[in-house]
Design a protein around this nucleic acid. Sequence first.
DNA 1: CTTGACCTTGACACTGACGTCAAGGTTTAG
DNA 2: CTAAACCTTGACGTCAGTGTCAAGGTCAAG
Lengths: 133, 133
Amino acid sequence: MRIGELATRTGVSPRAIRHYEKAGLLSAGRLFNGYRDFGDQAVAEVKHVARMIRLGFSLEEIATFPACMFTDGAAALCPVALQAHRDKLEEIETLIAELEERRDRLLATLKAAAQQSAQAARVASRDQEANGP
Amino acid sequence: MRIGELATRTGVSPRAIRHYEKAGLLSAGRLFNGYRDFGDQAVAEVKHVARMIRLGFSLEEIATFPACMFTDGAAALCPVALQAHRDKLEEIETLIAELEERRDRLLATLKAAAQQSAQAARVASRDQEANGP
DNA sequence: CTTGACCTTGACACTGACGTCAAGGTTTAG
DNA sequence: CTAAACCTTGACGTCAGTGTCAAGGTCAAG
């Protein structure tokens, strides 16, 4: 597909998509007339990048562990590719660990908030009783 | 404490701290000589802001729910903050899930490759025998 | 053939989160 | 008294991520 369709299907502007491509996060073929030609996986890729950015990763950061996002196809035959796959796997797990840390921090914040509001509710109802019947 | 101490205790630069204050995320008193004067809670506040930023929140986003993040109780009175946190959390979990899927696919690929190479080894050794002693 | 929608590259503009430098006041150490 | 270390405000610089505009090629519809 061309860049416009990819843009509408991902909700990411063509400008941003070109930017991602130039940053090496996306690879596009070219049509005879010079137009970029994206495969279907590009939709997932772009969404993925957008999500990473919303999470506070820079394009450069994303570029350090991106191989996994783009080339997880079927090049498992030669040992070089095999090692590459193992490296990618390691990178993915590092990334997952990092994300889980972020997630846990968020969860902790939410939990603390819940506790506080419960506490507030208890105090409120106790005050209610004191002033009530 | 003054800005320098706060900076060393939080690992955040004085410049950034002034930036946070100007953005309304921090409140500081003033000493007789005009120097900023921060209380002990400021350490936690600054660290909190830094953490939020690392999580991908902008100062403006953070500024929409500042008081309730730090003051006792009233977290429930700040649904904006909670919802923002839940949204981030959701994004992170989507990303983690996506990555885990890719990781699993990679693992499967590696496993298949290992089987294939084992198979190849068996074939090789059988050929060896056939041609051998 | 023209119009309009879509594509290209390139360049400049803006925003956010700072870094950095300037020009100066304050405080402590020697 | 002076130097060093800290503080102030203000202004300009930077980098990333995008918007936007310019100048032009491509292409399907009328």
